[in-house]
Simulated scan of single mutants.
Amino acid sequence: MDDTVDPRLLAHADVWGRKASLRAVYGDYYFRMLGALPPKGKYLEIGAGSGHSRDFTKGRDITRLDILPAPWVDTVADAQSLPFPDESFDGIFLLDVLHHLAEPRKFFEEAARVLRPGGRIAMIEPGITPISWLFYNYLHEEPVDMIADPLADQHYGADKDPFDSNQGIPTLLFRRQEHRIALSEAVPALRTVDRQWLSLFAYPLTGGFKSWSLIPAGLADFLVRLEDRLLPALGLLMAFRLFVVMEKRP
Rank of each mutant, 00 (worst) to 15 (best):
H140Q: 11
H140R: 09
H140P: 00
E141K: 00
E141Q: 04
E142G: 04
E142C: 10
P143R: 11
P143D: 06
P143V: 11
P143T: 13
V144K: 01
D145P: 02
M146K: 05
I147K: 00
I147V: 00
P150W: 09
P150Y: 10
L151T: 06
A152C: 01
D153G: 06
D153E: 10
Q154Y: 07
H155V: 01
H155W: 02
H155F: 00
Y156M: 06
D159A: 09
D159C: 06
D161Y: 01
D161E: 01
P162W: 05
F163T: 09
D164R: 02
D164T: 05
D164E: 15
S165L: 02
S165H: 04
Q167W: 09
G168D: 12
I169S: 05
T171R: 07
L173W: 10
L173I: 12
L173E: 09
F174N: 04
R175M: 15
R175H: 12
R176V: 15
E178I: 08
H179N: 14
I181R: 12
I181L: 11
A182H: 07
L183K: 04
L183H: 03
S184F: 09
E185I: 05
E185T: 03
E185Q: 11
E185S: 09
A186M: 08
A186C: 08
V187W: 08
P188G: 09
P188M: 05
A189T: 02
L190M: 12
L190K: 08
T192F: 08
T192A: 13
V193R: 03
R195W: 04
R195K: 10
R195C: 11
R195N: 01
Q196S: 04
Q196A: 07
L198I: 00
L198T: 06
S199P: 03
S199A: 12
L200D: 00
L200R: 00
L200C: 00
A202T: 07
A202Y: 07
P204R: 11
P204E: 14
G207F: 02
G207S: 03
G207Q: 09
F209M: 02
F209K: 01
F209V: 04
K210M: 14
S211A: 14
S211G: 10
S211F: 00
W212F: 15
S213I: 03
S213L: 02
S213E: 12
I215H: 06
P216Y: 09
A217Y: 05
A217S: 13
A217E: 15
L219Q: 10
L219P: 08
A220M: 13
D221E: 15
L223D: 03
L223Y: 06
V224K: 07
V224I: 15
E227D: 07
E227F: 06
R229N: 13
L230W: 15
L230D: 11
L230M: 15
P232S: 10
P232L: 11
L234H: 03
G235T: 02
